[in-house]
Write a protein that binds this DNA or RNA. Structure first.
Length: 485
RNA sequence: GGCGCCGUCGCCAAGUGGUAAGGCAGAGGUCUGCAAAACCUCCAUCCCCGGUUCAAAUCCGGGCGGCGCCUCCA
């Protein structure tokens, strides 16, 4: 597996440092609002990474956190008049629902920053930093002193002298010795949640939770992979490195994987990234409200390489939906093959799998695997699927592909989907159609009878009725299939 | 102002030296009670200018345009 490493700015061969288990940490959501589709682009990308690594035979130990304490969560919970923990729990639940809807595999650990053991771990990390001389106290807060770490900035590659005019350095924190020093443990006001893990009362700074939780849950540094959105490179990940390496004296993470932004057209601003602070966000619920399925959104994510900005639009959503249908329609056609074969009068030579088909499948499988192993090129991988779909459709037309080949075809697509995770998601959605399945089947029978009686008016009425309720009927030669719109 | 990324068919999007994947839309056709759906076929020389090379979308230089980070942020 070739993986681009932000630390070295190069693609490198990836393998875990300890045995076959990949120890990976993903920066998750700050839970003061429902995650938007930009957030989920990152989460789907790391899900694909996770699946790809598993597919290569590695075990995963994957941690993804919830940031459930920071300025915003505190502010919003106070506004809502709800205790912080209870307030953030709502958005954690919402996240978990969206994650299922988008086909994200559950990760091994979903720690919350305010869990007792994590607060304790932060205390230990800060104590270690104090012992190593990386901290100073000021106005009741504890800060990280950047000048004590010579290679600070190695991830972001930010030239200190470059942070000058034009850059907005927060200037109201005069209690810091250096503008770039950052807070580890923050003094709290009377009405704010406060903890004291042996370092004095306060609350976590933004970065400390990830260092502490990653080290607590993933074992000896360095961990194998640390992932997140590109906007986290600086300052968040740079500071995580400073904290973790300052505390342990060892490299924090071997690979840093960053997912590019999801971009959206704004009427006034032009194209810009989707973010809560810009207020141009759509949630999964908004997608569904517009009549699109989560599987189509997942497909849309997969269609652009994770290190390139993804241009989101409702047009692109619709195109993703249609493209995904092309694959699922093909699979439905393959599933319908046995029935067709049984009817065929000359069902004699149709029982042996074709070597030519097996060859096409093997070729596509290895091409697909190569693209995934090439820094997760899912977009190119999808291209392989479509090439295969066309070739196999033609093979069905010519009779070269028969019912005997169906299991092999299905198996090949199952393998693709182990990484993509989009076809299985579709199937789950299809199990809950807008009209109950038994009713659909009853109506199909009624329509069949009407057609046999050449009562086409009634047949069309049934079809239109189902169509209006989101169910499409397709008459094939032998039978009538249905699918969700 | 600093650092970095990007600009490929109407739309989305692969491709980083060897002569332009794929999807959507569109056009034509097959199938069909009509239709829908589905399937097949067709459909680009890569923002501009200059350079390197036998050969460039791919490398170098200069433009123009877009975006990100430097501040909370996936």
């Amino acid at each position: 597996m070739r993986l681009y490493n932000t630390l070295t700015r190069r693609e490198e061969d990836f393998a875990p440092s300890q045995g076959r288990t990949v120890r990976m940490y993903t920066c998750g959501l700050t839970v003061y609002a429902r995650g938007h589709i930009g957030n989920f682009r990152t989460f789907v990308a790391t899900d694909v990474l996770r699946r790809a690594l598993k597919h290569q035979g590695f075990e995963m130990r994957h941690v993804m956190n919830f940031t459930d304490v920071d300025d915003r969560t505190i502010l919003e919970s106070q506004k809502a008049g709800v205790p912080l923990r209870e307030y953030t729990s709502r958005f954690i639940e919402a996240y978990l629902e969206d994650a299922v809807a988008l086909g994200l595999e559950p990760v091994e650990e979903n720690p919350r920053a305010t869990d007792d053991e994590n607060i304790a771990a932060m205390g230990e990390t800060i104590k270690a930093l104090e012992r190593n001389g990386h901290t100073y106290a000021s106005d009741g807060s504890i800060y990280f002193k950047i000048s004590t770490l010579p290679d600070y900035g190695k991830l972001a590659h930010l030239d200190h002298t470059g942070i000058k005019s034009g850059a907005r350095v927060d200037s109201d924190k005069y209690e810091k010795e250096d503008a770039r020093d950052f807070v580890l443990w923050k003094a709290t006001k009377a009405d704010e949640p406060t903890w004291d893990p042996g370092i004095g009362p306060g609350r976590p700074g933004w970065h400390i939770e990830c260092s502490a939780m990653a080290l607590r849950l993933l074992g000896e540094p360095p961990i194998d992979i640390h992932a997140g959105g590109v906007d986290l490179i600086f300052p968040h990940h740079e500071n995580e490195i400073a904290q973790s390496e300052g505390a342990t004296g060892q490299q924090f993470s071997r690979f840093w994987v960053h997912v590019e932004h999801l971009m959206i057209e704004d009427e006034d601003q032009g194209t810009e990234k989707m973010s809560k602070s810009l207020g141009n966000v759509f949630n999964l619920a908004d997608i569904v409200e517009r009549g699109f399925r989560p599987s189509a959104l997942r497909y849309l994510y997969l269609g652009t390489h994770y290190r390139k900005q993804l241009k989101f639009s409702w047009t692109a959503m619709g195109q993703a939906e249609e493209a995904l249908k092309r694959i699922t329609d093909f699979l439905a056609r393959v599933d319908a093959l046995p029935a067709a074969a049984e009817r065929a009068a000359d069902a004699t030579a149709e029982s042996t799998p074709s070597e030519a088909i097996a060859g096409k499948l093997a070729q596509a499988s290895s091409a697909f695997a190569a693209h995934i192993a090439d820094d997760l090129n899912t977009a190119a991988g999808l291209g392989v699927l479509f090439d295969l779909v066309r070739a196999l459709n033609t093979a069905i037309d010519t009779g070269e592909l028969g019912a005997a080949d169906a299991p092999a075809v299905r198996a090949a697509f199952e393998t693709f989907d182990k990484v993509l995770g989009v076809l299985a998601l579709r199937r789950v959605e299809d199990e809950r159609p807008p009209v109950p399945i038994d009713e659909i089947e009853r109506l199909i029978e009624a329509r069949k009878a009407a057609r046999l009686a050449r009562n086409f008016a009634e047949a069309d009425r049934i079809r239109k009725d189902l169509d209006a309720r989101g169910i499409l009927l397709e008459d094939t030669g032998s039978a009538t299939r249905w699918k969700r719109k």
